[in-house]
């Protein structure tokens, strides 16, 4: 089980490395969207630092939504997905390996890029650290929920719009806890509860999403 997890993850990472440009689109989207806000709402530092964490979170979840729909697309098109369904290994483990590789390629770069964006929004070092930490804990959950949406809409025409309708409502609680942490810190309240809730969401998603996604893939291939 560990063996198949590691080999599927290695396979997806290697495939992504051979097609590096795909990965950069998501990151470029995140950078561009967050950079448009200072241009749009004006350069007052006070105002920018107020909207900073919200903008970063919205951009992160839109960037995830854009790229996650391709998670199973190429495997479905070339017949690899059939072989995954026929594997003696649990499909949920294969799905989890794919989501882990996906997060390393798209979620983690967003977290790494976040301090740079925080600079544009005039966040203090403490606030930057909190914003990055919420993204670090929150973005794997975004990927996991996105994978369920991707498997439910696999092979559907107009799946792109449908996945947004399915997944965005589920992203709402994460957005509230994630973006709220910086505000709570600024107001002098503790941020512990925000992190606890984000962590709880991650654990629930880790337990449920691979199974839900695997079930949806089996139905999609019938």
């Amino acid at each position: 089980m560990i063996g198949v997890f590691l080999s599927v993850m290695r396979r997806d990472l290697l495939l992504a490395w051979r097609r590096r440009s795909d990965m950069l689109t998501t990151l470029g989207f995140f950078l561009l969207v967050t950079s448009l806000f200072p241009l749009g709402v004006g350069p007052e530092p006070e105002q920018l630092s107020h909207i900073a964490s919200g903008v970063m979170w919205v951009a992160a979840l839109l960037a995830t939504l854009l790229s996650v729909q391709r998670l199973f697309e190429s495997d479905e098109a070339d017949g690899t997905l059939e072989q995954m369904l026929l594997s003696v290994e649990p499909l949920a483990v294969i799905v989890l390996a794919k989501v882990c590789a996906y997060w390393l390629l798209t979620g983690l770069p967003l977290v790494v890029m976040a301090p740079l964006i925080a600079l544009q929004f005039n966040l203090t070092p403490d606030e930057t650290l909190i914003a990055c930490a919420t993204l670090l804990i929150g973005s794997p959950t975004l990927s996991l929920l996105g994978a369920v949406g991707a498997s439910l809409t696999l092979g559907l025409r107009g799946g792109g719009a449908l996945i947004a309708l399915l997944v965005l409502p589920l992203y709402a609680p994460l957005l509230i806890f994630g973006a709220g942490a910086v505000d709570a810190w600024r107001a002098g309240l503790g941020v512990q509860s925000h992190f606890a809730l984000l962590g709880a969401c991650l654990l629930v998603a880790l337990a449920v999403c691979p199974l839900a996604s695997a079930a949806a893939l089996r139905i999609a291939q019938d």
Binding site: L14, L15, R18, R19, S74, D78, G79, T80, E82, L86
Partner: peptide, 14 residues
């Protein structure tokens, strides 16, 4: 069982 469908499950980049 071993199933080979008419799609090859072959990745272009590998």
């Amino acid at each position: 069982l071993l199933y080979l469908g008419h799609r090859n499950a072959v990745k272009d980049d590998f």
